[in-house]
Structure formats: C-alpha cells, structure tokens
C-alpha cells in the first residue's frame, strides 16, 4: 500500500512556484512590509560594503590632499585597505545582526498569521513538506526582491554621501565590477537570511495537527 500512497499525494514544484507567487501577489501590501524590513536591513549592509568598495577603488588614483581629507573624515585604513580594521568589521557584524533580527521577526509574523491557511492545506491532504516548500519559495522571492532593492538603495546612498564629501573622484573611479559584486553578494545574503528566518516558523507550522492550526484565532 505504501508505494501507491506515495505516488498519490504530490505537489509538483511548478505548482509550488505558482502558489507562492500568487500568495505574494495577492497579499502584496503585507508581503511588501516583510520585504521592506529585509530591504532596509540589507541596505545597511550594502551601504557599508559599497562605501569601502568606493574608497578602496579611488584611493590609489587620487592626490594626497584628498587622501588626507578621507582620513580626516574618520575612515580608517588597515594594511592599505578600508574595511578591514576591527572597527569596520564590527560595523558589518552589527549591520548583519540588525538584518537577521528584523528578518526573523518579519517572517515569524508572516507565518503565524497564516496558521489557519496552513491548517486548511493540511486538511486537504498536504504533507508537512508541501507547507514548508511553499514558505521557502516565498522567502526566496522576498529575499531576491527585497535584497536587490535594499542593496541597490544602500549602494546609491553610499555613492551619493561619499560624492557629497569628496566630490567628482567618487564617480570617476566608481568601481563597476566591485559594485556589481556587492549587489549580487548582498542580494544572496538577503535570500540566505530570509530562508533562515522562515525555516523555523514554517517547520513549526507544518508539524501542527490540522485541528490545532485551525483553532488559532485570526
């Protein structure tokens, strides 16, 4: 019996992708709030990273007086590069920490308020893994979108603030490749963090008895 049973309860990935996309689209405002949390947190990371990227790119190509102004502006160099001193690393860790807490909180809320829906899914014959899969794919969408928007925002703001302080050289020596790398890196980080945030609440929700999930107030 077990084999025939296994073949008969399925949720193809195509359907998972469709269901989660729809679920985000319909709840656009709600998912934008979650995504915004992600975007802002990632913007902070990307702001920090891309700032160092720009400073490192322009440093060898600018005259001594501007170099003095950068050092006077409070930016610290360590072994010839920005972003490697203990203080800088602390800043990145801090920004990541803000990011994780924000994302976990947002995803926890988003899953909790959908307990009823999860219970209904399970009544209709969904396995625990279907529920987890739907939330994971939603988290990837949100991670990609929020991460991209956030890292773009951080990048633009860091470019503009540095340009305000140090003028045209920021644009002239703007490191395109490095910035693209930062963009991709920060976006992937957002996806990873979004997944980290969603996996625990999704597992808890998926394992609930349907009756318990349905009893939750909304």
């Amino acid at each position: 019996m077990a084999d025939s049973v296994r073949r008969q309860v399925v949720l193809p990935w195509g359907q998972v992708i469709k269901i989660s996309f729809n679920s985000i689209k319909v709840r656009l405002f709600r998912s934008l709030v979650t995504t915004m949390t992600l975007a802002l947190a990632i913007a902070f990371v990307s702001y920090t990273w891309s700032g160092y990227e720009i400073l490192n790119a322009m440093w060898p190509n600018i005259d001594a007086s501007l170099q003095d102004r950068i050092i006077a502006g409070g930016y610290e160099q360590f072994e010839g590069t920005f972003g490697t001193s203990a203080k800088d690393r602390w800043l990145v860790i801090l920004s990541l920490l803000v990011c994780v807490v924000g994302i976990v909180n947002a995803q926890l809320m988003a899953v909790t308020e959908r307990f009823r829906e999860i219970g209904t899914f399970k009544c209709l014959g969904a396995l625990d893994s279907f529920v987890v899969r739907i939330f994971v794919v939603e988290a990837v969408y949100q991670g990609l979108f929020g991460g991209f928007a956030g890292s773009l925002l951080g990048l633009v703001v860091s470019t503009l603030t540095l340009a305000l302080k140090f003028g045209w050289p920021v644009f002239i020596h703007w490191p395109l490749a490095g910035m693209l790398l930062t963009l991709v890196g920060a976006t992937l980080l957002a996806v990873f963090l979004s997944l980290t945030g969603v996996i625990y609440p999704a597992l808890v929700a998926a394992r609930m008895e349907p009756a318990v999930a349905l009893r939750t107030e909304q």
Binding site: M1, A2, V5, R6, Q8, V9, K122, C123, L124, G125, A126, L127, D128, P210
Partner: peptide, 10 residues
C-alpha cells in the same frame, strides 16, 4: 504522515 495525508486528501 503520507498515509494520513492521503486519507485526508482522498
């Protein structure tokens, strides 16, 4: 879990 899901489904 599979059989239970099958039961609820079918």
């Amino acid at each position: 879990a599979y059989e239970l899901a099958w039961l609820r489904c079918r």
